[in-house]
Amino acid sequence: MTPNWDDMRVFLAVAREESLSAAGRLLRIDPATVGRRVARLEASLDAPLFTKSQQGYVLTSAGERLMDHGLKAEEAMRAAAGAMAEPSERLSGQIRIGAPDGCANYLLPQVCGKICDANPNLDIQILALPRVINLSRREADMAVTVSAPTAGKLLVQKITDYKLHLVATQEYLADHPAVHSIRTLGGHRMIGYIPDMIFDRELDYLVDLGVDRVALASNSVSVQLRQVSQGSGICIAHDFTLPFHPKLKKILVDQVSLTRSFHLVRHQGDQRNERLNRFAQALSQGIRDEVERLEAEASP
């Protein structure tokens, strides 16, 4: 028996959320109904699609095979919906963006707010995760990344460069030995990412400075900046975050100045979706403008 699209939608939701209740919330149907639909699909295919574990619902080998076909079917349905949609000057519906913590906290709120102001019927969801967003499983419609992915059928475009510098509070600097050079950082408490949770080599800033110990660590940029703002140590900060933390002062600017880039990553199958193309254009321009504005405010 050929699976119908409604059952396939339920299957994909459970595969992504790994939970009947989470899939039910996503689809806005009762979890018991989700379970019955999955059972019906398994019966029609005469194959178990999930195993229940402590982590939730995990795909079996048969489920993994069906997932590949389900994603292709979903892509085709999305393309059809985009092709049939009536042209409109305004965007509508729901779009989910994945982004690293710094971008999600300090850039996307302003950028997405302006896009929503111009498109009142558009719902934007920001998925801030300390890891790479899995676009192949449709965790998001598009993602902002620091490194440009090289594998998978993806559309990748560079959005903009951004700057980073060492920062600390004036109070911390007054109460601790002077920071004259990179070599003197060893005598200070360094704040940064949890070393074994750095998901992108471009985020491993401190190792390039010869820092071998991170005394205060978090996988969240926001937590790191809160810690340094309280006078707890020194960290590397995005320049675009500094207007939100006026107590922070750049240090060793002539010796440490890092440049990284944001990229917008999308499903290759969405390249003919005019609605997502327009949103991607607005998002990219908004991020460029916001980085430029905030970095200008953060200049000495």
Rank of each mutant, 00 (worst) to 15 (best):
N4I: 02
N4R: 15
W5M: 09
D7A: 10
E17V: 00
S19A: 05
S21T: 04
L26F: 13
L26I: 06
R28E: 14
R28W: 06
D30R: 13
T33F: 10
V34M: 02
R40W: 01
A43Q: 15
S44P: 11
L49G: 08
L49T: 05
F50M: 10
K52A: 11
Q55L: 14
Y57N: 04
V58N: 02
G63M: 05
R65Q: 07
D68G: 13
E74V: 12
E75Q: 06
R78N: 12
A83F: 04
I95A: 12
I95R: 12
I97A: 05
P100K: 00
D101Q: 06
C103L: 07
L107Y: 00
K114L: 15
N119C: 00
P120Q: 06
N121T: 01
L122W: 00
I124V: 14
I124A: 02
A128R: 04
N134T: 10
R137N: 07
E139L: 09
D141L: 06
M142L: 15
S147G: 06
G152L: 00
L154M: 10
H165T: 09
E171V: 08
Y172G: 04
L173K: 08
D175L: 13
H180R: 15
T184L: 06
M190F: 08
M190E: 05
I191V: 15
Y193A: 09
I198S: 08
F199D: 07
Y205F: 14
L206I: 11
L209Y: 06
G210Y: 06
D212Y: 04
V214L: 04
A215L: 03
S218K: 02
N219S: 02
V223E: 15
L225Y: 04
V228H: 07
S229H: 04
S232L: 09
A237S: 13
F240N: 02
L242G: 03
P243N: 03
I251R: 01
L252K: 10
L252W: 13
Q255G: 04
Q255F: 04
S257N: 12
T259S: 11
H267G: 10
Q268M: 11
Q271A: 14
E274L: 14
R278I: 04
I287S: 07
E292R: 09
A296E: 11
E297R: 12
A298N: 10
S299Q: 09
